[in-house]
């Protein structure tokens, strides 16, 4: 399940998670030894012992698989060790990507909500547009990213806008589909009841449909957050690695800087998880204001 709810850390759930994480890190170290050994053996002098080999595999300049502490060092250095406006700072690159993802998310929310409201209220839109919205989810939308970037670049539009457009395009489908489902969630009996109170469509929407849809909005938002970030990252690839997490990935792969790739990847994952956490926090806030239930 993509973008599934982060399970709340209950007391009984923490120990297994910690054990699994430590096991993964141990496997990672072993993997680093196994994968880097051929290269490390070339660099070591004749007669070096196994202990030296292991130490060498964990501290190479361009390892096949960098050891976790190497990535952590690189992360710490590029996050805190450099001024944040410098293009060598990971904070700077992360912000470039996140700002595009956020702009795209805002775009997706506006468009998705508008479309969902239209689809729920206008039968013609429901019948004509909805099948296409669903079908377009089965299409690898990311494939169009290079073209959008190149075409918008021809028009003189570069920087944030093309990336936000792709991020928004990706994030808008889950929001639309989720909100259509949510706005249709109220019981027909309740809609009938409101109608007997002489409520108009606006009141039905604000009193019944909108509150009912919030339970669907947040799960869709989680998927949308993850997708918007992926969209922003991939949209940075065709511009030739100027700035952003995607650019760090591409530059790292050009120059064989594996540690840099892994650091960018971890940063992207952390950002994604942070986004999910923010959505969950907002959800909890909204739920509390409404008496603990969405």
């Amino acid at each position: 399940m993509r973008g599934g709810r982060l399970s709340s850390p209950r007391a009984g759930a923490i120990l297994p998670l910690v054990v699994v994480i430590f096991a993964l890190i141990a496997i990672w170290y072993l993997g680093a030894v196994a994968l880097n050994a051929p290269q490390a053996r070339d660099q070591l002098a004749e007669g070096a012992g196994f202990r030296d080999l292991v130490a060498q595999t964990w501290s190479m300049e361009r390892p096949v698989l960098p050891a976790p502490h190497q990535i952590a060092t690189e992360l710490a250095e590029s996050l805190f060790g450099r001024p944040i406006t410098s293009p060598r700072s990971l904070v700077y690159h992360t912000w470039v990507t996140v700002s595009a993802a956020l702009a795209g998310l805002a775009l997706a929310l506006a468009l998705g909500l508008t479309l969902a409201i239209g689809i729920v209220h206008v039968r013609l839109l429901d019948r004509s547009l909805m099948p296409w919205v669903i079908a377009s989810q089965t299409v690898p939308v990311l494939a169009i990213a290079p073209m959008v970037v190149v075409v918008l670049g021809n028009l003189g539009i570069t920087g944030l806008v093309p990336k936000a457009a792709i991020a928004g395009y990706l994030a808008f489908f889950p929001i639309t589909v989720g909100m259509v489902k949510g706005l249709r969630a109220p019981d027909p009996l309740q809609i009938d009841l409101l109608r007997t109170y002489d409520a108009g469509p606006v009141q039905v929407f604000s009193l019944l449909r909108w509150p009912a849809s919030l339970g669907f909005l947040f799960p869709s938002l989680r998927i949308a957050v993850a997708l918007a970030l992926v969209g922003a990252i991939v949209a940075e690839l065709p511009t030739g690695a100027q700035a952003g997490l995607g650019a760090r990935l591409l530059a790292g792969s050009y120059y064989g800087q594996t540690v840099q790739i892994w650091a960018a990847l971890l940063m992207a994952s952390a950002t994604s998880l942070l986004g999910l956490a923010v959505v969950s926090m907002v959800e909890a806030l909204v739920a509390r204001r409404r008496g603990g239930r969405l």
């Binding site: 599934g4 709810r5 982060l6 399970s7 591409l250 792969s253 892994w262 994952s269 998880l273």
Partner: peptide
């Protein structure tokens, strides 16, 4: 199960396409 599932959920939400260069 209790250890791997939260892990799986978290990893599903990450931008996995980023491993492509690796």
């Amino acid at each position: 199960k209790r250890g791997l599932l939260p892990m799986g959920n978290m990893i599903s939400a990450m931008p996995i396409v980023g491993i492509a260069p690796i």
